[in-house]
Design a protein around this nucleic acid. Structure first.
Lengths: 106, 106
DNA sequence: AAATAACGCAACCGATTAGTTGCACGTATA
DNA sequence: TATACGTGCAACTAATCGGTTGCGTTATTT
């Protein structure tokens, strides 16, 4: 199965997990407590997130801590880049229109 | 069906369509020519993109031009915001480490 | 007016998804 | 050493996805 970052963040539960572990690493059990779903389901989500390297594991005894690989999130940011230019252009156009209206005032 | 922006951009074909119509509006037929898939399939993608307001239509005779609603893309950007803070912090931390190494050089 | 073009919509289909339950395996604890 | 805990993995299931084909509608062309 080919996984990419965009498919990974498509699921709302997965986005919630990402938000949870963004600041501090957590175990699957701890994560599952935040949702009304089984630990196994969370485990599956973590597996998918791992497959596209959005998450890294760190074993600590019998517990496994999962942490967000923040750098990987930049991939989404990178894709957005092209559109950011466009929407900034749109707004600067608007700015121009507005300032023209201003300066052309009698 | 509840659609959200994240599910919309999960599909690679859909991302390609978004990229195509970002700069200029296009008809379903014109879009379909860029992919090896049927017009109807493209039409379905456009429907999904419309459902979550990532795209707007403009009828012109018997043709319908689809254009990207760039502003809606900001929703993704907005979600990324929280993580952008984190990854910038990570990098400024790294910067600190590096500059400390520098200044502590004999 | 008849033929053609551009399109949306519905029905169908195989593949994938997110979830469940049940188990096996290593690690801590008594 | 026996028991409980934390976890991953496999099998199963209902729902959804992305695609196709066929058809109806509206607008242009001849």
């Amino acid at each position: 199965m080919r996984r990419d970052v965009f498919q990974a963040i498509a699921d709302p539960t997965r986005r919630a997990i990402i938000g949870l572990i963004a600041l501090q690493a957590m175990t699957p059990n701890a994560i599952a407590e935040h949702f009304d779903t089984s630990r196994q389901a969370v485990s599956k989500h973590l597996q998918i997130l791992t497959e596209c390297q959005l998450v890294k594991q760190e074993q600590q005894g019998r517990e496994i801590y999962y942490q967000l690989e923040v750098a990987k999130m930049k991939e989404i940011d990178k894709w957005l880049e092209q559109f950011r230019k466009i929407w900034e252009d749109r707004f600067s156009e608007l700015d121009n229109v507005l300032s023209n209206l201003k300066t052309n005032k009698p």
